[in-house]
Design a protein around this nucleic acid. Structure first.
Lengths: 341, 341
DNA sequence: CTGAAAGCGCTTACAG
DNA sequence: CTGAAAGCGCTTACAG
C-alpha cells in the first residue's frame, strides 16, 4: 500500500477522440447545424428529429466543447474567483457563497490564487480573463489602476475593497466594532490597542479608522501597534510590544494574528483574558478552538460571496435583479474578553 | 463606507474588443501566420520582423486567446484540481504543492469542488475535462468505474485513493501509525479504539486496517466505533460511545473528528488526556490550537500535491522525468496523549 | 524567412 | 423545419 500505482495507466495513444456534432450529424443523417439546434434550443425542431439527435448524442457520449462554443459566442459559461491565498480560512465562506450561486446558475466557478504576489495576481487575472465571462477578486493586492484596467476588458467585481468605478462588495465594520467596544466599555476597559495589518490592505485601514473613531467617542484611549505579518507568527512576535503598551485589551487585524497572540501569551504565562483581553476579526475556522476561545468580529462572508456573484452576473447579463444587501459585521462574544469590574 | 459601490461601473457596451493577431498583422503589414510565429516560436523569424511584431502586440495590449489556441492544438495549458470541499483544511497543502508545480511550469491551475456530491463531482469533472489538459482528483467520491471512464478520455490522476489502472498518489500510513502506537504502548495504553470515517472513504479503510494489524501485533485490544459524519459535530456526537467503550485512547478518522471529540470532552468535564487520550490524522490548520494541543498523524500533503502534479504532467507529455517518491506519514506528538505509567 | 489555405468544433443569420 | 455558408481566433503543414 505504499505503492503509488496499481496497474499501468491508460496509454495516451489509447484515448479515443471525443465525439463532435459532426459525428452525431453523420450518425443521424442531418446537418451539423441541426444537431447544434437540437442540443441547444429544445423545441425548435421536429419532435422526432430532436429525439433522434439526442439519443445519438447520448450514445456517442457527446460532450460539448466549451472552448469551441466560446469562440463564436464569446460566452464561456465559467467565472473565476481569485484569492491571494486559497488556504486562508478567511476566504472559506466567501468561496462557499460564490460557489452556491454559480452552481445554481449552471455556471462553472473556477478558483485561482495569487500567492500574495501582485505580479502573479495580475498575470493570472489577465490570462484567466480571456477564458471566463467574469472575474471576482477577493482581497486583491493590485493597485486601483490595475483593477480599473482589468475591469475595462471584462466584467469584474471586487470584495473587501473599494475601487472607484468598480463594483464592490464590502462588509460594514461598524456594527461589529461598535458592539465589541460597548462590551469592553461595560467591562471596564479604558485603554485599548489595535494590532494592525498590512498597509496595503484596504480593510486594515477601515478597521483602524472605525475603531479609532468609536473608541474616542466612548472616551477610551487607543493606540495602533504595527504587526510584522498578518499571520499567527506575526501575532506571536507582537506580544511583547502589546504588553509594553500597557493596555487591557487589544484588537488584532484578523483572527490569524489574534490566535498567534493568544498562543504566545499562553506560552509565556500571560493570563488571557484577565491580564489581556483579545478580540480578532473574521471568525475563521479554529477561532473557537483555543482556551480561552477567541472573541471576534465576524464579517458576513458567505453573504459577501453570494452578493458578489449576483452582482457579477448582473454585470454580465445586464439583468438588474436585486439590490445590494447591506453586509453588517457582528461581534461574537466568546472567552477572550474579561470583565474587569 | 457601508456603500457597496462608489462610482458607476464600466458599462458593458463600453468594453473594447480584445486585440487579435489580425489586428497585429494589419498594424505591422505581415500575415497573421507570421504574427503567430513571432509570438510562439521566437527565433524563427527575421530579428527585425519579430521585434516589430512584438512591439505592436504590446502596443495593442494583445493577449492570446487560450480557447482559440486550444481548438487547433488540443492543448489548453490549464489543469484542474478537484476536491470534495475546497474549504476542508486537509486539502490546503495538497493544493499548495500542486499550485507550486503548475506555476513553475507556466500552467494555470484551476480548482473546483464537488461539495461532497458524487453526482456533482462527475458532472464537474466531465465539463472541466473538455477545457483542461488533465485532471487531478483529490479524495474523489466517485466509483472506481467512473474514475476509470474519466481517465480514458484525458490524463487523470487521483490522490488519497487507489483505483486499478489509474495513476495514484497515496501516503503510506504505516510509519505514522506505527510510531503513534509505539508511543501509546510505551505509555501503558492497552485498550484503544478507532473512531472511523465514511465507508466510502478509501483512506478510512486503510487507516483502520493498518491500525488493527499493528495494534494486534503489539498485544493491544482495538475496537472500531463508527462516527456519523467526518466533522467536528460527528466527533462531538461520538464522545459518549467512546467513553462507554472503556478504552484509554482513541484514534479519530481525521483531525476534524478529533477536534470535535476534544471539545466535547472539555465541555463535559472529561479530562483529556488523563482520562482519554486522543490522536487525529492529517495535522490540519488548527490542530495545535486547543489545550491540550492535538497529537496527530501527519500525511506529507504538500509532497502529495507536488508528486501528483508531476505524475499528471508525465501522463500529459509522456516525458518520464522522475520516480514516484515514497510518501510516509509521521506521528506528531503534542499534548493529547497521556503517560499512564 | 514568410504567406495562403485549411482546419479545430461550434453557432447563427440567411435561405429555402 | 432544416441546410449551406461564414465566421469566431488561432496553428501549422505546404509552398514559395
Amino acid at each position: 500500500m505504499s505503492e503509488s500505482e496499481a496497474l499501468a495507466p491508460v496509454r495516451p495513444g489509447a484515448r479515443k477522440p471525443p465525439a463532435t456534432i459532426y459525428d452525431i450529424a453523420r450518425a443521424t443523417g442531418v446537418s451539423p447545424s441541426t444537431v447544434s439546434r437540437a442540443l441547444n434550443k429544445p423545441g425548435r425542431l421536429k419532435e422526432a428529429t430532436e429525439r433522434r439527435i439526442r439519443d445519438a448524442a447520448d450514445q456517442l457520449g457527446y460532450r460539448i466543447n466549451p472552448m469551441a462554443r466560446a469562440l463564436p459566442t464569446g460566452k464561456t459559461g465559467t467565472l473565476a474567483l481569485l484569492v491571494s491565498d486559497i488556504t486562508n480560512p478567511v476566504y472559506f465562506d466567501v468561496v462557499r457563497g460564490a460557489e452556491r450561486i454559480a452552481t445554481a446558475r449552471g455556471l462553472t466557478l473556477v478558483f485561482a490564487e495569487s500567492q500574495e504576489s501582485p505580479e502573479l495576481e495580475l498575470a493570472t487575472a489577465q490570462r484567466l480573463q480571456t477564458s471566463v465571462d467574469g472575474l471576482f477578486l477577493v482581497a486583491s493586492r493590485l493597485t486601483d489602476d490595475q483593477i480599473v484596467e482589468l475591469s475595462s476588458v471584462k466584467p469584474l467585481i471586487v470584495a473587501n475593497r473599494l475601487v472607484p468605478g468598480v463594483t464592490a462588495v464590502v462588509p460594514d465594520p461598524r456594527p461589529g466594532i461598535s458592539a465589541a467596544l460597548d462590551r469592553l466599555h461595560e467591562f471596564g476597559h479604558h485603554r485599548i490597542a489595535y494590532l494592525s495589518g498590512p498597509d496595503a490592505s484596504w480593510m486594515n485601514g477601515v478597521r483602524w479608522r472605525t475603531l479609532f473613531t468609536y473608541a474616542v467617542e466612548r472616551g477610551m484611549s487607543i493606540v495602533e501597534i504595527p504587526s510584522t505579518t498578518p499571520t499567527r507568527e506575526g501575532g506571536a512576535e507582537a506580544l511583547q510590544r502589546v504588553l509594553a503598551a500597557d493596555v487591557s485589551a487589544v484588537f488584532a487585524y484578523n483572527d490569524l494574528v489574534a490566535l498567534g497572540l493568544l498562543r504566545a501569551a499562553r506560552d509565556q504565562g500571560v493570563d488571557v483574558p484577565r491580564q489581556l483581553s483579545i478580540v480578532g476579526f473574521d471568525d475563521i475556522f479554529g477561532a473557537d478552538l483555543p482556551t480561552p476561545a477567541l472573541s471576534t468580529i465576524k464579517s458576513p462572508l458567505r453573504e459577501m460571496g453570494e452578493a458578489g456573484m449576483h452582482r457579477l452576473l448582473v454585470e454580465i447579463d445586464g439583468i438588474d435583479e436585486e439590490h445590494a444587501p447591506s453586509l453588517p459585521t457582528r461581534y461574537i462574544d466568546r472567552e477572550s474578553v474579561a470583565d474587569r469590574r
